[in-house]
């Protein structure tokens, strides 16, 4: 992968494995995830619910509940080992180096404080400036995300804003400390279709303008195509295919990625049947042996049940974790 981005990567994730202790026993939510992210690059993470997209994000920020989680592997951010950060370093890492936009903006703001105060609070925490300066920064940020009459919106409580505006304010909050990496966890899922497009366009514009690297989680392939440079497709806690957005979305190599793309309704005509992937995603507590997708895969062979396929190169900067990938890619 490092051949793909000639520059030193901003973020380098190797064999990241996350397990949860649940009442039904331990489960593996992420299984040996590896990827690199260059400065200013946008990586789209796509996959079904429960495929480990959000867990990846939370692991990168280390905000998974400590007592019930086991993390192994390595996360290097500018060469620093994120998993080894001490409490104080972690506090400055979160929000200052890496910021996150949450899926549900109405829940991600504290209802009892004004939006301006919540943005200012983060600025004060990381920049050790006065509240005055922090409020000035908050105003600047609200203007940056194009919230109309930003000055009066500063004093709004979250419930006084519309969903789209709240998500813009959330973006303002995330960008207030100029992070190097932005994690966007399905930031448009909770919004109306028309507002979705506005927020996506805004995010893309700001990302270009500020040059920050972004990991964008979505289950909407159209959104992923719109914003990503590269795309990683996740299934049952593993990355099954990764490559440039154009390659992966136009000619997916992995059977699951193919199924995912053909099951979206983009381009389907009215009355035409949408091709769905048969079956259900596997239970993480009870994973099938070998390739996790094999029970649902139309091209599965007996061998698929025996080995967990490792990501194999399928062209420049492209990999897929499927033993049949050579014959499938045709």
């Amino acid at each position: 992968m490092s051949a793909f981005t000639a520059r030193e990567p901003l973020l380098s994730v190797r064999d990241l494995t996350v397990g949860f202790k649940t009442d039904r026993g331990p489960i593996t939510a992420l299984d040996r995830i590896s990827f690199d992210l260059g400065r200013g690059e946008v990586l789209g993470l796509i996959g079904e619910s429960g495929s480990g997209k959000s867990v990846t994000m939370r692991a990168l920020l280390r905000i998974l509940p400590q007592k019930r989680t086991t993390i192994s592997g390595s996360i290097l951010m500018e060469g620093r080992d994120v998993l080894a950060l001490k409490r104080r370093e972690l506090a400055s890492y979160r929000g200052n180096d890496v910021a996150m936009i949450f899926q549900e903006p109405s829940l991600a703001f504290d209802p009892v404080f004004t939006v301006g105060r919540q943005i200012a609070e983060t600025v004060v925490r990381h920049k050790q400036c006065s509240w005055d300066a922090a409020y000035a920064r908050a105003l600047e940020m609200l203007e940056l995300v194009r919230i109309p009459s930003a000055k009066s919106r500063l004093d709004n409580y979250p419930h006084e804003m519309s969903g789209g505006m709240r998500q813009r304010a959330m973006i303002a909050l995330a960008l207030a400390c100029s992070p190097k990496l932005l994690l966007a966890d399905e930031p448009t899922t909770a919004l109306d279709a028309t507002v979705q497009i506005q927020v996506i366009l805004l995010l893309r514009e700001l990302q270009k303008e500020l040059g920050m690297a972004t990991i964008f989680v979505t289950h909407d392939v159209g959104v992923a195509a719109e914003i990503s440079d590269r795309v990683a497709v996740m299934y049952a806690g593993r990355i099954v295919e990764m490559g440039s957005a154009a390659d992966v979305l136009k000619s997916p190599a992995h059977p699951y990625a193919r199924g995912l793309l053909s099951s979206t309704i983009h381009g389907a005509m009215a009355g035409e049947r949408v091709e769905a992937i048969p079956g259900m995603p596997p239970d993480l507590a009870n994973m099938p042996s070998g390739c996790a997708f094999s029970p649902r895969c139309a091209m599965a062979m007996p061998e698929c049940r025996n080995v967990i396929p490792a990501p194999a190169s399928v062209g420049a900067g492209r990999s897929a974790a499927c033993i049949r990938v050579g014959s499938v890619a045709a």
């Binding site: 905000i63 409490r87 929000g95 996150m100 549900e104 991600a108 983060t122 990381h126």
Partner: peptide, 14 residues
């Protein structure tokens, strides 16, 4: 367990 507590943690609050 609400999201904004997680959001506060994500922005570096102790």
């Amino acid at each position: 367990s609400l999201d904004f507590v997680e959001a506060a943690r994500a922005s570096g609050a102790g």
